[in-house]
């Protein structure tokens, strides 16, 4: 058997895919339903490997997202940082949960993330005016089991530890 290669790119590549999914043009009506792909990828890695993907990673990814999205610089960075902090605080618990219970937690975390963004948008005077703003929490929750399984496969194939 071939020895496990040191695949350092296995983690960045998932973030790259998450970025692409975040920026991919979608039909007009789906605009509020886009799941929080980057947050989901971050939750997975910080839950499994909190010593490799941590709050600092979340901050840098959030900053890149702010530049790409044209939002207030630091807005997504702050929201991701705080959310990932809590994920890392309870990563051992999250790992033990069955998939369905994990999904519920993801729903809560995405909602929390959205809540921080909501507050910031409120501060700068353009809070979202539609209840659909909270839809990503639901779509992320529904997609979480698949994301989790795909990421698990990916992690095992490239033996990331």
């Amino acid at each position: 058997m071939i020895k496990a290669t040191h695949s350092w790119w296995a983690i960045p590549v998932t973030f790259l895919v998450a970025f692409i999914l975040t920026l991919l043009p979608m039909p007009e009506w789906t605009v509020w339903f886009r799941p929080a792909w980057l947050l989901m990828a971050l939750i997975y890695w910080s839950m499994k490997l909190p010593y490799r993907v941590n709050v600092g990673t979340a901050w840098m990814i959030g900053l890149a997202l702010d530049v790409l999205n044209g939002t207030l610089l630091g807005e997504h960075a702050l929201a991701l940082t705080i959310t990932i902090y809590f994920v890392i605080r309870m990563h051992t618990r999250l790992r033990m949960y069955p998939l369905m219970q994990q999904s519920l937690w993801v729903c809560m975390l995405v909602m929390f993330y959205q809540f921080i963004l909501y507050c910031i948008q409120g501060f700068i005077g353009s809070p979202p005016k539609t209840g659909l703003y909270w839809a990503p929490a639901l779509t992320s929750m529904l997609l979480w089991p698949w994301v989790f399984i795909i990421m698990q496969n990916h992690r095992r194939r490239f033996k990331v530890a």
Binding site: W59, G62, L63, A64, V67, L68, L72, L73, G74, E75, A77, L78, T81, I82, I120, I124
Partner: peptide, 28 residues
């Protein structure tokens, strides 16, 4: 966290972060 709050305040005030944004957006 403090850094991101600082960034947000500066960006909202429009204080010189344009340059930072431009530099960051080159690779992106």
């Amino acid at each position: 966290m403090g850094l991101s709050i600082l960034l947000m305040i500066l960006d909202q005030r429009g204080a010189g972060l344009q340059r930072v944004r431009e530099i960051l957006s080159v690779p992106l």
